[in-house]
Write a protein that binds this DNA or RNA. Sequence first.
DNA 1: GCGGGGCGTTGACGTGCATCAATATGCTGG
DNA 2: CCAGCATATTGATGCACGTCAACGCCCCGC
Lengths: 258, 258
Amino acid sequence: MSKPASLDERPEFARARQTQMTLSDLKVACANCNLREICLPAGLNPAELAQLDKLVNTRKKIKRGDALYRSGEPFDAIYAVKVGSFKSRVTYEDGRDQVTGFSMAGEILGMDGIGQEKHNCDAIALEDSEVCCIPYTRLEECSREVAALGRHFHKVMSREIVRESGVMMLLGVMRAEERLAAFLLNLSQRLAARGFSPLEFHLRPTREEIGSYLGMKLETVSRAFSKFAADGLIAVDQKHIRILDVNALRDIYAHHVH
Amino acid sequence: MSKPASLDERPEFARARQTQMTLSDLKVACANCNLREICLPAGLNPAELAQLDKLVNTRKKIKRGDALYRSGEPFDAIYAVKVGSFKSRVTYEDGRDQVTGFSMAGEILGMDGIGQEKHNCDAIALEDSEVCCIPYTRLEECSREVAALGRHFHKVMSREIVRESGVMMLLGVMRAEERLAAFLLNLSQRLAARGFSPLEFHLRPTREEIGSYLGMKLETVSRAFSKFAADGLIAVDQKHIRILDVNALRDIYAHHVH
DNA sequence: GCGGGGCGTTGACGTGCATCAATATGCTGG
DNA sequence: CCAGCATATTGATGCACGTCAACGCCCCGC
């Protein structure tokens, strides 16, 4: 969800940052975006990318704690996270709510709104963030013209379905520590895919938000962190996490000894 | 998930059955299907329907307990339930599994496979069933030619995302009886949309399958049924359910007094 | 620099549901 | 039609996690 300061020195990172600095304020351009391999443009050829660039024409900055959109608002665009991270949250009639996901750079937000033409959850920035706006009607048109884009958008939606059924599994059959291990490993893997360290990172969400996502109370999250730390699997200092023993975490997640 | 015998006498039903009888063995035809208002064709005009009919050209019968597809199999089609019902089930590495959904007539199955080009769960028939096969590559082509179809398919996928986040809510924040009330009300509403009685029906899944879906053990499901029956909310006779007090069920589901 | 509120940790205790077990009931296939 | 197994119900007991509470840390604004 964020990078430790030490990572700034990695060469591929300096390059990416530079690219971003020189272009981001001039023009939105997927073709030059450092996220193009993991975001909507993944797998498109240069000509197709050019089409996509005509589609994605605006950016939007969202301050920490502010909403990108809220449940019930009319749906007209999906969003790609450019910088920062978000939580998605559905609120129930009686006021209770549940975090249904965390989104980081390159991930797509807002697909829940297509079905009813209004948003079905709140998307709240966990830090000062920036998104690329993708107007839905133009995405539709483009998908018809560029087959690869339409196909890839289907894939993105399908993967969201698969992701959610993974969370159902988590909530339905796993115990507290298994859930947290799954969460940490998932985070680790997504950070790695973005060139960040998979073993040391800064947690953006609070214990309460993590708990809401994992279907447990913040105290239970805290206790599970402490347990992992006591067992030498991770080092915890507030939101700063270091994974010391990935395999042990995987065992907890996958082996299910009890 | 099924209709009580008494419903067979309803006139709109007899008509639907007749239509089905005369056409189903001759030719697959969405335009004449009694499910066209709730299935993939919903909202298409006659010309567009004709296009869709060229796409959906085969049916498949699945016997009770058999799989329509299994996790890991290559993905090449999605399916619309024509007759019967299915459960979707994801199996975890250690053998534990979770039912992620139940599908009834008119509902679309298999969209989880698009993202990785292989199926991500098992779809098992809960009774002798029949599906319409929709080859995915042809669906893609068709979606490009018929804008309304592409749009509607996006909606179907989006609604699956929303459905799953509803289940996450259920698993993450509700207690056992709230979950079962939510399940019964959801079932009731979907049956009503298909012209069946929303107040009296036959449950297809076992207590264990219901429990797996709701993240609880079969004994807990059974106890919750008994509690509802004792309180006069429903009448239970094995799989036969009669809802006696919808509002009380809604209160349990929505009010969350505890 | 200091006060205050948000966040995190830890302990003590309670409870909702899982687990284990016994029995009843109903399908299903020979 | 009956044997055998899957399914369902119900009770007794245990435990994982929720709840309640106290306290410390950190950060932010004044």
